[in-house]
Amino acid sequence: MELIEVKNIVKGFTVVKKNKGLKGALTSLIKPEKSTVYAVNDISFSIKKGEIVGFIGPNGAGKSTTVKIMSGILHPTSGKVLVDGISPQENRKAVVKNLGVVFGQRTQLYWDLRLGESFELLRRIYQIDLKSFNKNMDIMSEILKINEIIDTPVRQLSLGQRMRGDIAAAMIHSPNILFLDEPTIGLDIEAKHSIRNYIEKINKINNTTVILTTHDLDDVEQLCKRLIVINNGGIIEDGPLDSIVERLAPYRVLIVELSKHCVDIVTPYAEIIKQENLKIWYRFKKNEITAAELISQLAQKLPIRDLSVTEANIEDVVRKVYRGVSNE
């Protein structure tokens, strides 16, 4: 059964055209020229329980609008969303009980309280029994090291510490679904590792469904098996991450370092894309020849001193998706 169903969602916003000058301002005030801009335009998808889905796109693509509709913050112009069979627009209270939401640039913590006091206040708001609360806090202390900052006022937390606190706050009531909007934005390497590790653990331990919107493609590569790409309000890709990478970047690169200069370095099995002194970069299609076969072919005529094989860069693949370019 699908845990989240998004059916033909459209979200339009009315905008008023602003004309230049005093006359234009008066005209806009008296007789405004209105138009509708569609942030989301007829998108549909479904998500199963336990999935970690990367939901990505360029700025203004419609990601945050879609997440806000799924969580019941916004109402769609048309279409319908069901979360575990319930509409978040028609019965938001019932849906919110099973949702955890983290927006990377906003906080749900209480600025003037200690972090622990924020958690205690949330425990009372969600009416969580003490046993369940302590169990969740133990898990978050183990993975997110919450115990190290539990007595620190929220206003004194670093960005990374606050993000750990926000994720803990979102999970304090054991939701089935976690919406994460830019959870690692602005964080250092250690903080990013901590957040990613926690997401993996709660998904594995509790089978928590995670919808991740991010511009950090390392988040996507390390956490997500499925990718939904949105651009200009519409879905342009939806499928297993590996399959999308395989289709849009069906090549690998073999980097060969020679022990001496050679004149004949060309091979019909690969394309030379770069050469620096004794180093040569060969690009080859994975479905036409294996790396081992290409190395064997080259070794018959070239004095190879060292070599390495690299996969396609996920950043290049996503950039290609955004531009709507496909590999033939």
Rank of each mutant, 00 (worst) to 15 (best):
T184M: 15
I177V: 08
T213C: 05
E190T: 15
P175A: 10
I195Y: 02
H215C: 02
N206V: 13
T214L: 01
T184V: 12
L178T: 11
G186A: 13
I189V: 13
P183D: 07
Y198H: 05
I228S: 10
I230K: 09
N197T: 07
S194E: 15
G233S: 09
D219A: 05
Q222S: 05
V220D: 10
E190A: 04
N176A: 04
E237F: 15
Q222I: 04
Y198G: 09
L180I: 14
N176I: 04
Q222M: 06
E200S: 15
E190N: 15
K204S: 07
S174N: 11
I202G: 08
L227D: 03
I199E: 12
N176L: 05
I205W: 01
N231V: 14
K201Y: 02
H193F: 05
T208Q: 02
F179R: 09
L178H: 12
E200N: 10
G234D: 06
I199Y: 02
K192D: 08
P183T: 03
R196P: 15
D216P: 03
V229T: 10
H193A: 11
L227M: 04
G234C: 08
D188A: 05
N206D: 05
I195D: 09
L180M: 15
E237V: 11
R196H: 11
L178I: 10
H215T: 00
